[in-house]
Simulated assay, not measured.
Amino acid sequence: MRTRRAMVGRLYRELNLTAGQVMGFGVTTERRRQTVYDNQNNGRVFLPGVRSRGWGDPPVQDAAVNQAYDGSAATYDFYSDVLGRDSVDGAGMELVSTVHYGVGFDNALWDGAQMIYGDGSGHIFQVGALTRSLDVIAHELTHGVTEFTAGLIYSKQSGALNESMSDVFGSLVKQYSLNQTADQADWLIGEGTLVPQLGRALRSMSQPGTAFSGDRQPMHMDHYVNLPDDNDPRNDNGGVHVNSGIPNHAFYLAATTLGGHAWEVAGKVWYTALTKLIRPHTQFREAAQATVDVAGSQFGNDEQAAVLDAWKAVGVLQ
């Protein structure tokens, strides 16, 4: 599915095609920004599934449908109201979601054209938890934003940046919905989605490596995990979910140093870097310098110093 996402994203960027041209759907009308479908546990052959709720429709009896609808709406509103972006493609792309995907499917993901939510098996993810988690929804939809902008290659450092950008904006959407300051936020991604015996969350941006049992995310380049990108799932595409802890922690440090609402300065800096300066093969150091440059040009010396110090603290810049 991630391979498909990468291929679709490349078509968008290199051929300058719209979502509708590539996938045959996805262009919004004036009245409709999102639609939720029910896969009825049938898997990929039945995507997107049976239409369950469209834009402006009232809630239905299925909690997963309503949660996917509300999470997509909250993410759309954040990007629109805070960053001036019209949907994931910046051009009003309809947000299509499918719930009840497969049987006990332990994942939620953006597949290049739409959101897919499994129900969870109860062994890794709690049943129903993936549609309840706003930051997970926003994380996955941000993969769509990255797909249409920087196109970060899903491997090693560029892939870790891809994952980190999704964590950054996943957390910001949650903070925005709760009107939390950087100091008030928990900086956890997917809190309460895992079964309790595994841990409290998928990742911690404030303390990488502490979210769940077996979490080996580093927070400093001294502990960067050098894994091969060899199609072995144990190696995580060269450690994209592992090493994302380093840029995640840099954002956390910058946001908490700047204070206030994290989306107002740090979030805008990271968004401008993602959409204007970062490219498919960008590495940690290049991305860090991009955010430092944006902080100085878009805000000022104090903001630039906070961003620079954050990247120094995690060992990416000196």
Rank of each mutant, 00 (worst) to 15 (best):
E163I: 04
L274R: 03
N301L: 14
D293G: 04
Q114V: 02
H100K: 05
L83N: 08
S204T: 03
G260A: 11
A74D: 10
G102F: 02
Y76N: 10
G54T: 10
H100C: 00
G20M: 00
E303C: 03
A313N: 10
R216G: 12
N107L: 01
M219V: 00
A64M: 10
D89S: 15
T291R: 03
R200E: 10
A262K: 00
L274K: 05
K174F: 15
R33G: 15
Y117N: 09
L95N: 05
G199L: 10
L194A: 12
H139Q: 14
R85E: 10
T3K: 11
A64Y: 08
A113L: 04
H100T: 02
T256I: 02
R85N: 08
T75P: 03
Y271M: 15
W311P: 00
T149M: 10
K276F: 05
P196W: 06
R33H: 12
M205A: 13
E30Q: 10
R31L: 04
V307Q: 02
Q298P: 00
S72Y: 02
L198V: 06
G315Y: 03
V269K: 05
M205R: 02
G71Q: 08
A262E: 07
I189C: 08
H100E: 02
M115I: 03
P196A: 15
V96N: 05
A287C: 11
Q318I: 00
E303R: 02
D119S: 15
N237E: 13
V269Y: 12
A108E: 04
Y117W: 14
G122T: 13
D215H: 08
Q289C: 09
L109H: 06
G43K: 08
D86I: 01
R13K: 05
G239N: 10
V314I: 02
A185F: 07
G151Q: 06
T142P: 01
M165C: 13
A19V: 07
A306D: 07
F212E: 05
Q197W: 13
K276M: 14
V103T: 13
L134W: 10
H139A: 13
G92M: 04
D135P: 00
V36N: 07
A113H: 07
A211I: 03
M205C: 00
I116F: 06
L47A: 14
S206C: 03
E30H: 06
R32V: 05
N162C: 10
A150G: 14
R51Q: 14
P218L: 07
F212L: 09
G159Y: 03
Y252L: 01
L194D: 10
Y37K: 06
K174L: 15
T181I: 09
A266R: 01
S155R: 14
Y12Q: 06
Q184K: 09
A129G: 10
D186F: 04
E14A: 11
L15W: 11
P59E: 15
H241R: 13
P280H: 09
R200K: 14
A160D: 14
Q157F: 09
V168W: 11
A19G: 15
D183T: 09
S171M: 13
H220L: 07
T257V: 01
A68K: 04
E191F: 02
G102D: 08
M7N: 14
G296R: 11
Y76I: 07
R51I: 05
G43L: 11
A68M: 08
H123C: 03
D215C: 05
